[in-house]
Amino acid sequence: MTHIDPDALVASLRRVQTSSSTTGIVQQLERAVGVVDTLFGYSGAGLMFAEEGKDLRYLVTTDDRGRSLEGAQLHLGQGPCVSAYAENTAVTSTDVQVDPRWPKLADRLHPEVRAVAGVPVRLGGDPVGTLNVYQSKPYEWDESDVQALYGYADVIEQLLTAAMAAEEKSALAEQLQYALDYRVVIERAIGYLMGKHDLTATQAFTGLRKQARDSRRRVADLAAEVLGEGAGETR
């Protein structure tokens, strides 16, 4: 039995529908990870997804240091996030740079990625990805950290489920896949802007995202435009 008034809920959702513009699930997930990052107060957070039978990849990450977690784990096929996904349970590391479970990871990680915690994000009970946070210094994760991370992962699951309310699971998977695919364009644009304006990756991405928001465009579209201009310059 729920403790909900369904009529009041539907009438209130109708108000929300009329007072807000449609926002894609990927953008909502980006915002959600941003909130998790802010509330945890750690160095960074990210959300990884795995297409069925494929590798775990970042859909959202709050900074480029955390992004190295993906590259290292993709290359080696192992790491804390891979384990959290594969074993469908929380995995923590006090200092992933010296963790004997993944001895080769350190060579490929950003040096400021130290303590890592990941929990599975599930849909219908099955893991579809992981929510991860990291710290730039070694840190002993305690039970309350893990429980809070599980709580956030639960909210993200509800976001995904809400997005699926009117769509098939395959349609949601398509949206997520689209975001994963277009991330490549975004990363290429970041690389281009870094070279052209002597920026760090974070500065380039923040600038790109701000400009996209200000002009009400998607980051991927703006990134493609930036790359188009870049190609024009070199011709």
């Binding site: 009529d7 539907v10 009438a11 209130s12 959702l13 109708r14 929300v16 529908q17 807000s20 449609t22 926002t23 699930i25 909502q28 915002r31 959600a32 909130v35 802010t38 509330l39 956030y152 909210v155 509800q158 976001l159 809400a162 997005a163 699926m164 309310a165 009117a166 769509e167």
Partner: peptide, 27 residues
């Protein structure tokens, strides 16, 4: 402060529901 952040997450869930659910009609 954490409660405020969690409020933002609640709004995201409500927005996503509002735009993806068959909720037309008047109360």
């Amino acid at each position: 402060q954490t409660g405020e952040g969690l409020g933002r997450l609640m709004v995201m869930v409500l927005q996503t529901l509002a735009h993806n659910s068959p909720i037309s009609g008047k109360s």
